[in-house]
Nucleic acid binder design. Structure first.
Lengths: 202, 202
DNA sequence: CATACCCTAGTACGAACGTTCGTTAATCGC
DNA sequence: GCGATTAACGAACGTTCGTACTAGGGTATG
């Protein structure tokens, strides 16, 4: 890897951490440079504009998410086990503090850009659509496997799962309530129980 | 009412709208003054500092919320009717566009300040605690009335209700998905059904 | 080892930020 | 209606913002 490319990666990693605390808009080139012991201009040269930096920062966070939440879940058995793994990984992502000290960046950016049209918002929407699709697919597979009852609506269940994660994030981050994780687990179980197939096919 | 007091109210109303779009941090005194055809210094004189403006803006939004969501719900019959009214009002708050063009200000501020200690965060936490307490109380009443089964955990149910609202806000605001409101209704029904008392006492 | 390129730092810019100042104009209580 | 109080203004403060330049040193390739 070229020198520039590796410092660029270094910059983006720090940018993800900083943006998770200050938001994508609050993330400033000056403070980012200071954190990395670089000059503002030297850092800026890596990105043509601030929007580029924001987009690449968001993309980096999305990649991290898919690598650490979605991808590992695919290693688990199709159906409920995979769905549970996905949920568990997701909660792990929510509470991770090392490279996301301010909580999920996509979530923060969603609130920030939900009424600000542009490339950032488009990227957020695309990522969210991809995530929803993946969850819904996992649910559909669980139905096919006979783990969930056939009448289960994958999109509705995805919606409710997402709600649990959002509430967990909120309680864990703002209120500092660690019990939110147990609450999330309980909510998941009740949700799955309500849609559990009467008699497993296999 | 004194002259200063009424322009102050005018300022705060506009501040709530602007902050709902740009966040409490993104809300700048200059742009706010421009919107109101005032001078920056004239506006600033009403508040000793930007943090004061932020705090008063947030308080105004909280008052609006309690007046339009919680308070009207108390007029409905104790138990499930009141709980449903509360939820319905809440969804109405989420989708209102006139004075909250950028979505719920408390929610935006929560994401912005969840990792920024200070007076703003404290106010947010206090408001959230009050809200949670009110919802949990409504649930407890519904249990006492025999509408929900006695083993229902009010805090757990409050948590899950909150999750549904959060997911609705997200889908409605970021994805522009109006079906989120129907999804929320369906999720509420499933949740209430799971906790419904077998035989109503009254 | 030499050369070409790629980084990075330095400097400067106009604009916007929150804040303070002194002053004028409007409003209030008597 | 007069005098005291309050509301609003315009200008300027120092700082930080994102963004252009110009050089010079480090790195990788021939």
């Amino acid at each position: 890897m070229r020198k520039g490319e590796q410092t660029r990666t270094l910059i983006l990693n720090e940018a993800v951490a900083l943006a998770s605390q200050l938001g994508l808009e609050g993330l400033s080139i000056g403070s980012l440079a200071e954190r990395l012991d670089m000059s503002k201009s030297g850092l800026f040269a890596h990105f043509g504009s601030k929007e580029d930096l924001q987009l690449l920062t968001l993309k980096r966070a999305q990649t991290l998410f898919f690598d650490e939440v979605l991808s590992p879940a695919l290693k688990h058995a199709r159906g409920l086990p995979r769905l549970r793994a996905l949920f568990s990984n997701w909660l792990g992502w929510v509470k991770r503090n090392d490279d996301l000290p301010g909580g999920c960046l996509m979530l923060a950016a969603s609130v920030e850009y939900d009424d600000r049209p542009g490339a950032v918002r488009d990227l957020l929407v695309a990522g969210q659509r991809e995530l929803r699709g993946a969850v819904a697919k996992a649910i559909r597979i669980a139905i096919d496997e006979g783990h969930l009852e056939p009448h289960t609506d994958p999109w509705q269940l995805t919606f409710e799962l997402f709600g649990i994660v959002l509430a967990t994030h909120h309680d864990f981050r703002l209120l500092g309530d660690a019990r939110a994780l147990e609450r999330a687990g309980e909510a998941l179980e009740r949700l799955l129980e309500a849609h559990r197939a009467a008699a497993p096919r296999a």
